[in-house]
C-alpha cells in the first residue's frame, strides 16, 4: 500500500476540499436567500419563511414553466437516448464509426448559445427548414417555427436533440463495444434476425449505457436556459418558458433575488432526485 502522511493528504486534497466547502455553502446560501425579503439591487436578508414559495405556487407562470420542463425532459430524453443507441448500433455494424461519430459530435462540441442562433436562422420563415419543405412539395407544412406558439417549444426541443445525440451515440457505442461478441455470434448461428438480436441482446446488454445517458440527459433538460434565452426569451407568450429562464429573469432582470432563489431551490430539489441515485450508482461502479 502506498503510504500517505497528513502533509501529503493536504497537498492533494486542500484545493478540492476548499472548493467543495464553498459550493455547499453557496447551496445553503441560495436556500436561505429563497426565504428572505431580498427584492431589489440592495442586499436584504430578513427571514420571511416560506412566503416566497407560497407566492410562487400561486403564480401561473411557475406551472407553465414547470410543464414545459417536464415536456422538454420527456421529449428530449427518450428520443435522444433511443436514437443514440440505434445509430451507435448501425455505426458499429458498418465499421465506419470514425467519420459518422465526428458528424454527430460536432453539434455536441459547440455552445448551446450558438446552436440556438444557428437554428433560429434554420427556422426563419425563409430559412432552410421551410425551404426544404417547399422543395419536397410540402409547402402546407411550412410555418414560422419558433414564433408560432404551437410549435415553438417542440422546435427548441429538437435543437437540443440535435446537440446531444452525439453524446448519446458515444455512450452507447462504448456500451455496445463492451458486449461479448460471442453472444451475438451464437444468436446469428441460431438464425435470429438483426432486429431480434437488437431487441433481445443489444438493448438488455447496454442497460448501463441507459443508466449513464438517461439521467444526464434529464438533467440537461431540467436546467435548460441558454437556448431559451437566445432564441425566444420564453416566448411567444409563455410557450417556451422554462424554470431556468424564469429563475434568471426573476433574479437578474426584475431583481427579485429571493423569488429567483426560490425557483433555483426548486430546480435544485428536483435535480437531487436524479443526481443522488446517479452518484450512488457511479460510486458503486467506482469502488467495487
Amino acid at each position: 500500500m502506498i503510504a500517505s502522511s497528513l502533509k501529503e493528504k493536504l497537498i492533494f486534497l486542500t484545493p478540492i476540499l476548499l472548493i467543495t466547502v464553498i459550493l455547499y455553502i453557496m447551496i445553503a446560501t441560495s436556500i436561505y436567500v429563497s426565504m428572505s425579503d431580498w427584492r431589489s439591487y440592495k442586499i436584504s436578508l430578513n427571514f420571511i419563511g416560506l412566503r416566497n414559495y407560497i407566492e410562487l405556487f400561486s403564480n401561473p407562470r411557475f406551472y407553465a414553466a414547470l410543464r414545459n420542463n417536464i415536456i422538454w425532459i420527456a421529449l428530449f430524453m427518450v428520443p435522444t437516448s433511443f436514437l443514440g443507441l440505434v445509430l451507435a448500433y448501425i455505426m458499429v455494424s458498418t465499421g465506419k464509426e470514425l467519420i459518422f461519430r465526428t458528424v454527430f459530435l460536432l453539434p455536441t462540441a459547440i455552445s448551446m448559445t450558438v446552436a440556438g442562433t444557428l437554428w433560429v436562422w434554420m427556422y426563419a420563415s425563409e430559412g432552410a427548414v421551410n425551404t426544404l419543405l417547399k422543395a419536397f412539395n410540402l409547402s402546407f407544412l411550412t410555418k414560422p417555427w419558433i414564433s408560432d406558439p404551437s410549435t415553438a417549444l417542440y422546435a427548441l426541443i429538437f435543437v437540443t436533440i440535435w446537440q446531444y445525440l452525439g453524446f448519446a451515440v458515444i455512450i452507447f457505442e462504448a456500451a455496445i463495444k463492451g458486449i461479448d461478441p460471442s453472444l451475438i455470434e451464437a444468436a446469428q448461428i441460431d438464425g435470429a434476425s438483426s432486429l431480434r438480436i437488437f431487441w433481445d441482446i443489444v438493448v438488455p446488454q447496454v442497460r448501463h449505457g441507459f443508466l449513464v445517458a438517461v439521467p444526464l440527459l434529464a438533467l440537461s433538460a431540467l436546467k435548460i436556459f441558454d437556448i431559451v434565452y437566445v432564441a425566444t426569451r420564453g416566448g411567444p407568450g409563455l410557450a417556451t418558458d422554462v424554470l431556468g429562464y424564469f429563475m434568471w429573469e426573476t433574479a437578474f432582470w426584475s431583481r427579485f433575488m429571493a423569488d429567483g432563489a426560490a425557483i433555483a431551490t426548486i430546480i435544485f430539489a428536483i435535480s437531487l432526485g436524479i443526481v443522488i441515485p446517479y452518484a450512488l450508482i457511479a460510486l458503486r461502479r467506482w469502488f467495487r
Binding site: 453557496m26 436546467k223 435535480s271
Partner: peptide, 13 residues
C-alpha cells in the same frame, strides 16, 4: 453531487 447539480442554485450566492 456538486458536479452535476444545475448551476442555477449557485448563481445568486
Amino acid at each position: 453531487i456538486a458536479t452535476f447539480i444545475p448551476y442555477q442554485i449557485l448563481l445568486i450566492p
